[in-house]
Design a protein around this nucleic acid. Sequence first.
DNA 1: AATGAATGAGCCTTCATTCAT
DNA 2: TATGAATGAAGGCTCATTCAT
Lengths: 192, 192, 192, 192
Amino acid sequence: MEKGDKPADKRGAILDAALRLIAERGFHNTPVSMIADVSGVSAGIIYHYFDSKDELILELYRTVKLDMLQSMTDGYSNDLSYRGRFDLLWVNAIRHVISHPDAAAFLEQFESSSYMEPTLPEDCVAEIDLVMGFFADGVAAGVLKDLPTPVLLSLSIGVAASLVKQHLAETLVLDDDLSAAAADACWDAIST
Amino acid sequence: MEKGDKPADKRGAILDAALRLIAERGFHNTPVSMIADVSGVSAGIIYHYFDSKDELILELYRTVKLDMLQSMTDGYSNDLSYRGRFDLLWVNAIRHVISHPDAAAFLEQFESSSYMEPTLPEDCVAEIDLVMGFFADGVAAGVLKDLPTPVLLSLSIGVAASLVKQHLAETLVLDDDLSAAAADACWDAIST
Amino acid sequence: MEKGDKPADKRGAILDAALRLIAERGFHNTPVSMIADVSGVSAGIIYHYFDSKDELILELYRTVKLDMLQSMTDGYSNDLSYRGRFDLLWVNAIRHVISHPDAAAFLEQFESSSYMEPTLPEDCVAEIDLVMGFFADGVAAGVLKDLPTPVLLSLSIGVAASLVKQHLAETLVLDDDLSAAAADACWDAIST
Amino acid sequence: MEKGDKPADKRGAILDAALRLIAERGFHNTPVSMIADVSGVSAGIIYHYFDSKDELILELYRTVKLDMLQSMTDGYSNDLSYRGRFDLLWVNAIRHVISHPDAAAFLEQFESSSYMEPTLPEDCVAEIDLVMGFFADGVAAGVLKDLPTPVLLSLSIGVAASLVKQHLAETLVLDDDLSAAAADACWDAIST
DNA sequence: AATGAATGAGCCTTCATTCAT
DNA sequence: TATGAATGAAGGCTCATTCAT
């Protein structure tokens, strides 16, 4: 498996179906049998690829989270100014989430639920480090306020997440202009 | 029986137990029978006070949300400066949530789930108006940035919520100093 | 009680409500609490008048059955010819049932169910005897066919019941003419 | 397992058990779990074969009704005289019901209850037409009285049903002689 | 007599998981 | 690998009945 052969990518099909269904219906309104139906496999085989429904969801989280972090850090480089790096993270994050609303809904739900394991997926270490590094370096360079990294995160990426959430709930229209204005405001929040 | 205790406020006991259990275990891991056990009543009587489990949860939401909004707006007055009003809302919100972690966990979970009815409880109108009014007035007065109210909310109250969430998850220690520093940062974000 | 005083005829009100509700909804779709609501009493008091729901239904059966038999034999006299007596029973039965559709529906349901106790209510003995006597006398007199009384009953009253049932189900319009024609046919069936 | 037995016809076993239990105990005294126990399956699997308890009962009705009608019309032919055809229907009906008392009890209960859907099962159309045709043709030929078909049905098949019901209740012994005598009486009722 | 809150057993149904094929 | 019938443990909810008042 994992070879790339299309015919047998059942595992991927299962994860896709699970993402779509859970995003729309929630964990507990998404029976394993429904994931099986939608992904075109039998219920039994799901237990060949995943140990349990919970394990399937956890694995889905890892996949989706990694994807998100990779998109967000795409093109990141220390050659950019701090503001430039911030803007890149901001724009990437917003674009990715807006174009992957199921992923956003799933992450939101997952991270607000008791499924949440406090630790982040291991594969994401590089991307995480990069983002954390941005804030640490910015503080050290005196460009960013001297606040704990989690606070700076809440003041920037957290806000972006909140705005996209409202966009997806259609209680706010987040176009490029508004996104840029919000980025400015966040920069005011975190920069010295 | 139980003379000294509250005079058989079963309804209240049920809501209390539900809040505690759901905050810890989630809606779907909290059977009605468990709520009954913890609140010391029979399972059947719950359906005397509430039409269904969902209705119980919705009612709990209304109660908890109203409580939260009332705490947050306690002492609010247009006599205060904009910054003063902002600080009051900020401090009230953070204090209330930190001292009511179950309520916070419940609200977070509820508002990220499909239980969420898009409309806010009717009893909260006054408090909501007050908060919204703060932002609208501030923009009109040129004190706050000319951004849509939801964006200003995300940049301020949203950040507070995020910080408290991390505090409760014990990934951040949110003492008064840090809270004040974060409030400063948010003020930078929203003020002109 | 039983004095005739209107104010306190709760027992009657309960039976009335039970008849109406059970006729429309069936035994098992008619909770005791609903009978209480409709009859304007509390659920608890029903157990003062009746030992149990089953006993209430049994009592209702006795009442309704007696009423039916009394109507059917009203005006009966051995002075009439056999055919005259038959017509009287026929017309009485059909009239009563058509004007008491709830009673009919209830009896039908009761007598087809496992609630049915094989013995008839004791208060009806006189009326029963009268009807049975009609058939026995008719056979003895050579006017009616020499068949067991239950068979003669099925061939006459049983048919009337069946016709009224269809009338109430609106699958047949049973006017006086058709009723008379059917009575003629039944008379052909039972007479020598 | 259970090698010799029928090859795991669970669906049939469920219907059989349901028929037996419901005939004896009524719909509402027959929990799904009891049907499962008696038919030797788990409760859950019943919902694999039927959408709900109600659907199971409806399906049972269709099966039993079709079986009944097929037995009743077995050997029917327009080559027979009207009286011959009547006797065939009569004898078939009585034999079938007497040898299938559970089916009779179930049908009686079902058709007197609010489960009854006014329309007959679709699969029975041919048999129904045949029986209705008998009466219509007989009237047209001047052999039967000019009464609406439902009335003629009540006067004949309805009586047969009533007699068998009494037989099963052991309030009447319906042997072949008595059955024949009753058929004669019914013929008197419907023929010109 | 009367109320109606309270109980608790039992019912229908769902669904994660297993297993024979 | 793959299927899908089968299991069985819960879960939400109803309702006959009781009991403190």
